[in-house]
C-alpha cells in the first residue's frame, strides 16, 4: 500500500480542468470508480458513458473533430479491447488524446500476477504510446504532462492510475 498522500478524485479533476478537458468518455472500472461522484457533479466536464470500451476512442475522436477536448478513461482490460479503435482512430489520424487507464493488477511491491497488468506497459511501448504512472496526489501533475505531450506529438499519450486498494 502506498503511504503518504493518497490519490484523490478532486486532484485528478483539478488536472483535467487545467488541461481544458471538456468530456470524459468512460466505462467505470475498479481502479477509477472513486472518480465517479466527483466527475458527475463537475459542471465543466461532461461524462459520456459507453457500453464497451472500444466506443470511447471513436466518440473522443468525433468530439475532437467538433472542437472539444475529450479524454478517455478505461481500465487496462478495456484498453486491450479497444485496440483497433486506438490504432485507426487515434494513432492513424494523429489524435492528441489523453487516455487514462485504470491499472488493474498493478503493485508497487511484490510480483505482479494479473496478465492485464503484465502486458499493458509492453503493449503501450510496442504501439509507441508514451505512458506515465499516477499513484498519489503528488504525481497527479503527470496528467498535465501527458496531455501536453499528446498535443505536441499529435499522438495518444496514456496515464496509468496505479492506485492500490486501501
Amino acid at each position: 500500500m502506498v503511504t503518504g498522500s493518497a490519490l484523490k478524485a478532486k486532484r485528478i479533476v483539478e488536472e483535467l480542468k487545467k488541461c481544458g478537458i471538456t468530456h470524459v468518455v468512460w466505462l467505470p472500472d475498479t481502479e477509477a470508480r472513486f472518480m465517479y461522484d466527483t466527475l458527475i457533479n463537475e459542471k465543466d466536464i461532461k461524462l459520456v458513458q459507453v457500453c464497451r470500451e472500444g466506443e470511447t476512442v471513436a466518440i473522443a475522436a468525433g468530439l475532437y473533430v467538433g472542437g472539444k477536448e475529450p479524454c478517455v478513461l478505461i481500465q487496462n482490460t478495456g484498453f486491450l479491447e479497444s485496440g483497433d479503435s486506438i490504432r485507426g482512430l487515434a494513432i492513424d489520424i494523429h489524435l492528441p488524446l489523453l487516455i487514462i487507464i485504470g491499472y488493474r493488477g498493478w503493485k508497487r511491491v511484490g510480483n505482479i500476477t494479473d496478465s492485464a497488468a503484465i502486458y499493458i506497459e509492453p503493449i503501450l511501448d510496442a504501439w509507441g504510446i508514451k505512458h506515465y504512472l499516477v499513484e498519489t496526489d503528488a504525481d497527479a501533475h503527470n496528467i498535465s504532462i501527458a496531455h501536453k505531450e499528446a498535443h505536441e506529438t499529435k499522438r495518444p499519450v496514456a496515464v496509468l492510475i496505479g492506485r492500490e486498494y486501501q
Binding site: E55, G62, P70
Partner: peptide, 9 residues
C-alpha cells in the same frame, strides 16, 4: 460512435 462524438460536439 464516431458520429456520436461529432453530434455531441
Amino acid at each position: 460512435s464516431l458520429a456520436l462524438g461529432v453530434a455531441l460536439s
